[in-house]
Design a protein around this nucleic acid. Structure first.
Lengths: 199, 199
DNA sequence: ATAGAAAGCGGACTGCGGTCCGTTTAGCCT
DNA sequence: AGGCTAAACGGACCGCAGTCCGCTTTCTAT
C-alpha cells in the first residue's frame, strides 16, 4: 500500500482500467450525442462494458463523472497559465496577465458551459480548477500591489466570469461577447487603479 | 375573455383555486419537512388534493413551482426597496442606498438559498426579481454619476451576491459574513470612486 | 336554461439517477 | 501455488420528475 501522491491505498488495476474505460466512454457519448444532456449513466456504463454500480463506485454521482471529465480538459489550460507563452503565461506585466487570464477564462467557461452546469456543485465551484483559478488571481492582485482583502476581491473579479452569469448575459440578454469583455477589463482597472494610483 | 393585466385569456376559476391550493400546499410542506429538498411533486399534489398533471399544467416543472414560491416572498422585499424606509428605500444618498441594497440582497439570498437553487435557471436568473434587481442597481449607479457601461458594471456588482458564490464562501471556505460584506462595500467604493473622484 | 367547445383535470406510465447486496476478483502473505 | 481478505463488480430495484390522453368542468353564446 505505497501511497502514490497521497490518494490513500493504491487503486486496484481493474478499478483503474474501468475508470479509464468509463471516462473514454463518457467522452465518446458526449461527442456522439452532440452534448452532455442525453448522456445517461446507463449508456456510459453499457458503452464501457461495466455495470452501473461500477460507475457510481468510481465517480460517486453523475455530477462527479462530469467533474472528472471537466478536470481532464482543464489541465491543459492550467498548464498554459502556469508555463505557456505570455501574456497568459508568465513574462508579461501583472495587469496584462490578469486581463488575458480573464478573457481566456471567459472563453473556456463559455465553451464548456453545459459540462460545467452538468457538474453542478462539484463542477462550477468545488472542482480542483476553482482553487487554482482563485489562487492565480490572488497572486496577480498581490503582484499589482492591491491593498485590501485580496481573497475577497479575487472572488469579486471571478464572479462575473461564472457560467451562470455569462449565459444570462449572452443567451438571454443578448449582450455581445466583446462588450462583456470590455466591461470586465473596465471592472479590473477600477478595482486595481484605486491602490496603484494612490500607494 | 376580458384580458386582466395582459396575462392572455382569463384563468378559469377552478384553475385559479388550484394554483392557490398548490402554492399553499408547497409552502406547508416546505415548513413541515424543514426544507425544500424532500418536498416531492407527488406530495404537493396530494396535499393540495389534486392530480399530479395539474401541478405541471400550472407550474410547468418543479423549478417553475419553486420560482413561483420565491416570487411570493420577493414581493415584500421589492416593496421595501421601492417605498420602504431609508437607507434601503428612497430618501438616503445613492451610495448609502447601494450599500444597504447589497447587504439586504445578500441576506435575502442566503436566507432563501435552497429555494433559489431548487428554482434553478427559472429561479436564480430568470425569475421576475432578477430584472428588478438589475434595474435598481443600474439606476443607483447612474444617480452616482458613474461613467462607463453601467449595465455591465451592475452585473459585475451583483455577481458576487449570487447564491452560488455566497454559499461557496460561507459554507466551504468558511469566510465570516461580516468579511464578505465589508469586501462588497470595498468593491462598490472602488468601482464608484473612479468616476466620482475624477469627474 | 342549455349545448358546444375549450380549458382543465387526474393518475397510470416512462425514463433516469441513485442504491443495495450477493458474487467475483485482484493482490498479498505464507 | 494456495488461500485469505478487502476491494470491486453488476444488475435488479427504488423514488421521483415529467408526460400523455381520455374524462370532467367551466364559460359563453344563444
Amino acid at each position: 500500500m505505497l501511497p502514490l501522491l497521497d490518494g490513500g491505498p493504491v487503486e486496484r488495476s481493474d478499478a483503474a482500467r474501468n475508470r479509464e474505460a468509463l471516462l473514454a466512454a463518457a467522452e465518446e457519448l458526449v461527442h456522439e450525442r452532440c452534448g452532455v444532456q442525453g448522456v445517461t449513466m446507463d449508456a456510459v456504463a453499457a458503452r464501457a462494458g461495466v455495470g452501473k454500480g461500477t460507475v457510481y463506485r468510481r465517480f460517486e454521482s453523475r455530477e462527479g463523472l462530469m467533474a472528472a471529465l471537466l478536470n481532464r480538459s482543464e489541465t491543459a489550460w492550467q498548464q498554459s497559465v502556469l508555463s505557456g507563452p505570455p501574456p497568459l503565461g508568465p513574462g508579461a506585466p501583472p495587469l496584462e496577465r490578469l486581463l488575458a487570464f480573464g478573457h481566456s477564462r471567459m472563453e473556456t467557461n463559455l465553451l464548456h458551459g453545459d459540462l460545467i452546469q452538468a457538474a453542478g456543485q462539484s463542477g462550477s465551484r468545488a472542482y480542483a480548477a476553482v482553487s487554482f483559478v482563485a489562487m492565480h488571481v490572488r497572486y496577480l492582485l498581490t503582484e499589482l500591489g492591491v491593498r485590501g482583502d485580496v481573497p475577497i476581491l479575487a472572488t469579486a473579479l471571478l464572479a462575473p466570469l461564472e457560467i451562470v452569469i455569462l449565459q444570462q448575459q449572452t443567451h438571454i440578454e443578448q449582450v455581445p461577447l466583446e462588450r462583456i469583455r470590455r466591461g470586465w477589463d473596465d471592472l479590473v482597472r477600477r478595482v486595481v487603479s484605486v491602490d496603484v494610483v494612490a500607494p
